[in-house]
């Protein structure tokens, strides 16, 4: 099962939709504004970030044709919600994942 094969928002097609329905914790696109210096999220989906709880880097499948590089951030927004977002360091874009 390749992570890069996971369809993201905007994916279409019956088999794709079916695969998506049967997979758990698939990433969803998120609107994130980040600090340009260190990439720290400042707001997620319109909510300001109150605190960053943790950050980690995931590098996987570097030996394959679909390598994966993500910088994860676990943040708490001003409404008190705990959110995990990541920045795709290969293709760009922010995603929310739980």
């Amino acid at each position: 099962m390749s992570a890069s094969a996971i369809p993201r928002d905007g994916g279409s097609g019956g088999s794709v939709a079916s695969a998506r329905r049967h997979r758990l914790a698939t990433p969803r696109r998120a609107r994130v504004s980040a600090d340009e210096r260190d990439g720290r999220p400042r707001a997620v989906d319109g909510r300001l970030v109150d605190a960053v709880r943790e950050s980690w880097l995931v590098e996987d499948r570097w030996w394959s044709e679909a390598p994966l590089r993500r910088r994860y951030w676990e943040v708490v927004t001003t409404c008190g919600r705990n959110v995990v977002v990541y920045h795709d360091l290969r293709e760009g874009g922010w995603y929310r994942q739980r």
Binding site: A3, H22, R23, L24, A25, T26
Partner: peptide, 8 residues
């Protein structure tokens, strides 16, 4: 990678 952990 969270999406690889479990499926329905």
């Amino acid at each position: 990678v969270p999406e690889r952990r479990a499926v329905l």
